[in-house]
C-alpha cells in the first residue's frame, strides 16, 4: 500500500511537470516567432536606418531602397475603409439581433453568421475580383483594383467578428437597465441609444478593434484585389499595396537584403497588430 502511494505521488508529479512544460510551450512558440522575425528583420534597420525604412517612400529592394511608409499608410487606409463599411452594418445587425429579433430568429441567425466567419478569405477575394472590381471599374473609373474594392471586401469579411462580439456585449447589459429606461417613458430606440449602447460601448469598441486586426492582417484576399501599386493612393479608385501584400508578393522570390526587407515589413506589422490586440483586450476586460 505504501509502495503504491509512492508510485501515485511520483505519477502526479510527472503529470504536473509535463503539463507545466506543455503550458510553457505556447510562450516558447511566441518567443520563437518574435525572435526569428526580429533576427531576420533587425539587421536591415541597423544597416539602412529606421528612418529610411519606416519613413522611406521608395521600395526597390534590389536597388537598395527599403521604404515602406506608403505601405503602412495603405494598410491603415484599407483598414479604416473596411471599418467604415463593416462597422455600421455589423453594429446595426448586432442591435437588431439582440434587441428586435425573436428568439427563434436569434437561434438561426447568430450561428449562421458565425459559420460564415469560417469561409476562407481567398474565397472573399476571388468573389471581389469577379463581382466588385468590374463594377468599380465601370462606374467609378480606374482599373477596379483599388482602395474602395479592397475596403468593401475586407468590410464584408470582418462583419462576422463585429456582429458576434457586439452582440455578446449588448446581450450582457443587465435587463434592469432597460426596464428602468422604459419605466421613465423612453421609447425602445431611446433606450437602446441612450442606455444599452453606452453600457456596451467598450465591448463594441473591442469588436471594432478586433475587426481592424483581422483586416490589417489579411493577406491573400488583399493581393488579389488591391492592385499592389507602390504609391500611396490619392483617390479611392487608385491601387495600393499593404504591408501583408508586400510580404506575400515577394517572399518566394527574395534573397539577401531583399528578404531582410520583407522581414522588416513583418516587424512593423507585428508591432501594429500587438498594439491593436492590447487595445482590444483592454476594451474587453473593462466590460467585465
Amino acid at each position: 500500500m505504501v509502495h503504491m502511494n509512492r508510485w501515485v505521488s511520483i505519477r502526479e508529479k510527472i503529470v504536473k511537470n509535463t503539463l507545466t512544460v506543455f503550458a510553457l510551450s505556447s510562450l516558447l512558440f511566441l518567443f520563437l516567432i518574435f525572435i526569428f522575425i526580429l533576427i531576420e528583420g533587425l539587421p536591415l534597420f541597423l544597416k539602412v536606418g529606421l528612418k529610411n525604412i519606416i519613413f522611406g517612400f521608395k521600395w526597390a529592394p534590389t536597388k537598395g531602397y527599403f521604404g515602406i511608409f506608403p505601405m503602412i499608410i495603405s494598410s491603415f487606409l484599407v483598414t479604416f475603409g473596411a471599418l467604415i463599411i463593416g462597422a455600421p452594418l455589423g453594429l446595426s445587425c448586432a442591435i437588431y439581433l439582440a434587441e428586435y429579433s425573436g428568439k427563434r430568429l436569434k437561434m438561426i441567425l447568430k450561428p449562421a453568421l458565425e459559420l460564415l466567419a469560417g469561409i476562407p478569405s481567398v474565397v472573399y477575394g476571388f468573389l471581389g475580383v469577379i463581382y466588385i472590381v468590374p463594377i468599380v471599374r465601370e462606374y467609378l473609373g480606374g482599373s477596379g483594383f483599388s482602395l474602395i474594392s479592397t475596403s468593401i471586401v475586407l468590410g464584408i469579411m470582418i462583419l462576422p467578428t463585429i456582429i458576434s462580439i457586439s452582440f455578446d456585449s449588448i446581450m450582457s447589459v443587465p435587463r434592469s437597465y432597460r426596464e428602468g429606461s422604459y419605466a421613465m417613458g423612453a421609447t425602445k430606440w431611446q433606450t437602446i441609444f441612450k442606455v444599452v449602447l453606452p453600457a456596451a460601448r467598450s465591448g463594441i469598441l473591442a469588436s471594432f478593434i478586433l475587426g481592424m486586426g483581422r483586416a490589417i492582417g489579411e493577406t491573400m484576399a488583399v493581393i488579389m484585389i488591391a492592385g499592389n501599386a507602390l504609391k500611396i493612393p490619392t483617390n479611392i479608385t487608385d491601387p495600393l499595396r499593404t504591408l501583408t501584400g508586400n510580404i506575400a508578393l515577394e517572399l518566394a522570390y527574395a534573397t539577401g537584403d531583399h528578404r531582410l526587407g520583407l522581414f522588416s515589413t513583418g516587424i512593423v506589422l507585428l508591432i501594429i497588430i500587438m498594439a491593436l490586440n492590447y487595445l482590444a483586450n483592454f476594451g474587453i476586460k473593462r466590460r467585465i
Binding site: I33, I37, I247, I273, L276, A280, N281
Partner: peptide, 25 residues
C-alpha cells in the same frame, strides 16, 4: 497571467506572419 497573455498574443498574430516564421524557421 503570462501564459494567458502569450496565448492571446498568438491568437492575434495574422497568418502571414506565421508563414514568415515557418518559412525562416
Amino acid at each position: 497571467k503570462i501564459i494567458r497573455f502569450g496565448v492571446e498574443s498568438l491568437a492575434g498574430i495574422p497568418s502571414i506572419l506565421y508563414g514568415l516564421f515557418g518559412f525562416i524557421f
